[in-house]
Design a binder for these strands. Structure first.
Length: 375
RNA sequence: GCUGGAAUCGUCUAGUGGCAAUGACAAGAGACUGUAAAUCUCUCGCCUUCGGGCUUCGUAGGUUCGAGUCCUACUUCCAGCA
């Protein structure tokens, strides 16, 4: 069983700080986990990730299965060794791709879809996802889940039921692999169930009850796309899930409010592609909201992207320089911007953790969000 | 000097009688949430009450219902010959 110590519980009964003890190291929670879909955080080296304060990364089983193949990662000694991250790692199951790729067919066994790289037909099942994740060797695996294509109650219920069926199969396969593989390896690997149910609280409650009843090490909260209604949903779910297991909010964190609301209502870890994607497209976080560094008004702005920011980018370079790098399409533009944005969200969650420990969360939240969204 | 060729939005470019006129780049702005994302969208002659109005393809004339397109002259550039 994955060891998770809760170090402080916040007065609202949901938020907490803690430590997840993984075979590759500890994660102080709440924590922002870097999205390293193809075993790399785009535009950043693992050393840069360490330097900006990241504690863990999350890779995607679907992408690694297509390239370079999970056997190769196993041969390399696992995701941490292969990528030179050497810290705590997560893998997403590939379930999200069922939702996001076109031409996906749900079958008795799992899901068939076409490789976005070369169109090869490709099937993933709960069992094959577990096998792939064990081969990749991340510390924490996500159960193979299914998101509804539409937001109506019926489709959401069908997707949720399927996710539950698949969860049962994931748990069985995970336990089988744990007995056959882990006893020969130095490191155990852990499984999170994924709670679905969309925006419907009855479904979220049912899904949380189902997931809570299973032998899993933690929980992913899936199918969340906006902070609207998230607080209520998380209260519903986290009133049901056992408190002593960690919870990961899947895919959320592009907007700072996601991180505040997520942490406030009991999420321990987050991952999101937004910060690095927006960085590559020139949209940079500041305490006063996002700026588009490509805008002409930054041509002669010789101040840092965000005054006071401790990241490599802000300590050494100016907005005018970043503007120039973006306008001339230099690779370094994306590197520096990604360092800044990734540091920003990691740092916000670090500050949230500190404020929870100091019981100053409400003040920090109000001050941050007022400034960020009212400028 | 002679003989050919060429001049179109910031740049390159499409256009051989019929709707301010193609495409690319540049420029201006927007989007992005478990990454088919180094991506995508919009604007890009001037004005506009968004209906439309006005002025444009080197310059000046001409032919024509109608000219970026055909004719004449001029200007500039390119190539070849002197």
């Amino acid at each position: 069983m994955l060891k998770f110590d809760i170090t402080h519980e916040y007065e609202n009964g949901f938020a907490r700080t803690g430590v997840i003890h993984t075979p590759h190291g500890d994660i102080k929670t709440p924590a922002f986990v870097g999205a390293a879909t193809r075993a790399t955080v785009k535009a950043l080296t693992m050393q840069e990730m360490r330097d900006l304060g990241s504690q863990a990364i999350l890779a995607n089983t679907y992408h690694l299965l297509l390239a370079p193949g999970t056997d190769l990662i196993k041969e390399a000694g696992g995701l941490a060794e292969f990528s030179s991250w050497h810290g705590p790692t997560f893998t997403d199951s590939g379930g999200f791709q069922i939702f996001s790729l076109p031409d996906v067919k749900i079958t008795m066994n799992g899901a068939k879809f076409k490789s976005h790289i070369n169109g090869d037909k490709f099937e993933m099942t709960p069992e094959s996802s577990m096998q792939a994740q064990w081969a990749i060797g991340a510390d924490i695996h996500m159960a193979f889940d299914h998101l509804a294509k539409s937001e109506n109650h019926k489709d959401m219920e069908i997707a949720m039921r399927r996710t539950h069926d698949w969860l049962d199969r994931c748990v069985i396969e995970h336990q089988r692999l744990s007995k056959t593989i882990a006893k020969n390896a130095k490191a155990e690997q852990y499984l999170y169930a994924v709670v679905q149910g969309g925006t419907f609280n009855d479904l979220r409650a049912e899904s949380a009850r189902y997931c809570a009843s299973k032998e899993v090490d933690g929980f992913g909260i899936g199918g969340v796309f906006t902070a609207d209604g998230m607080a209520e949903m998380l209260q519903t779910v986290h009133s049901i899930l056992p408190k002593n297991k960690p919870r990961h909010l899947l895919g959320m964190g592009q907007e700072p409010i996601d991180l505040f609301v997520g942490a406030e209502f009991g999420c321990d870890t987050f991952d999101c592609v937004g910060p690095t994607r927006m960085a590559r497209n020139g949209s940079l976080y500041t305490n006063d909201g996002r700026i588009n560094i490509k805008n002409a008004k930054f041509t002669h702005d010789f101040s840092p992207v965000m005054p006071g920011c401790e990241c490599e980018c802000c300590k050494n370079y100016t907005r005018a320089y970043l503007h120039h790098l973006f306008k001339t399409d230099e690779i370094t533009a994306k590197v520096l911007a990604s360092i800044h944005n990734e540091h920003f969200v990691v740092n916000v969650v670090d500050n949230i953790r500190a404020s929870l420990q100091n019981n100053t969360f409400d003040d920090y939240k109000n001050e941050f969000l007022n400034r960020y969204y009212n400028n």
